[in-house]
Amino acid sequence: MSFLELRGLGKRYGDIEAVSSCDLTVEKGEFVCLLGPSGCGKTTTLQMIAGFVPPTSGQVFLDGRDITALKPSRRGLGIVFQSYALFPHMTVAENVAFGLEMRRIGRGEREQRVTETLALVHLDAMTDRYPGELSGGQRQRVALARALVIQPQVLLLDEPMGALDAKLREDMQIELRALQRRVAITTIMVTHDQAEAMTLSDRIVLMNRGQVEQVARPYDMYERPNGQFASTFLGKANVFSGRSNGKSVLAGDRWFPVEGNIPEGDVDYIIRPEKIEIVDTAPLLHGKVSARVFLGNHWLFQVDTPLGPMHLTQPNTGMPATGEGDVIGMSWVGAHARVVASGTSR
């Protein structure tokens, strides 16, 4: 049995199905992200694991034990709240020591563990400050230290980077990842930022409208999305609807290449922008460049094609020869395309 397991976990609020029958297993030491658009039920799922929201169906198992009915205070999980929820009337050290006090850990050991944990998050110099005197990033690290110091079985984080600016967010992501590796703690994090999910997680749990769409490693989910939602939520993608005969896909009046086994019938044909090449001979598709945007490390082209607007990107290896208004030929190999039955797409 896995370390943490959700079995058919669901939550209804009256008529609203916030989370419907969520199944998930998490291994010890794994870093899992719950990713999805706003309102898809990420927080609700996390709160059900934490014990603050009672599920209307299903169970939560931790280390083989059913903890569904256990009070939050008895679960021994470390939680970092979106607002950090630091105790404003306590110093950094008192905040971190609180959980140890509740566990009746003696003063000597308590102080030692607080010092160690604050060193871990590089806050040793701030022990006597109050939360009101800290920056956003420092507050977040206090919240992290407060959750980690009790040596929880699982660390739960609800959009911990939400309040940080882009640069700091990147730094904190790298730091969090390194920290998680070092203390080898099972971690579940909620985010709606796909880049963050890819940077941090061993596996991504993609959610949409209260349902789990796909669970996969970041690379697998990016390369083999199981539907239109997954392909467009994680990175950019061009999606055509078409018909498959099992060997190739007909979209508009053209046949497109595929590789391996694909479903037959109505399908979505998915190709990532960076997999498309601009070619002069034997293109799969022609189109007229309607916009060219410089994005630093690459160029983004929007191309009007008979199948509708498409995106393609090229690495920035100098000023591209193609400009707005040019008609170009596009090509790609079947191995890079992904074909899913349209029923699975939403």
Binding site: F52, P72, F81, A85
Partner: peptide, 11 residues
Amino acid sequence: ATEHAAESLGA
């Protein structure tokens, strides 16, 4: 959330 935080810490 501060109350929840305290609860999760065992209070």
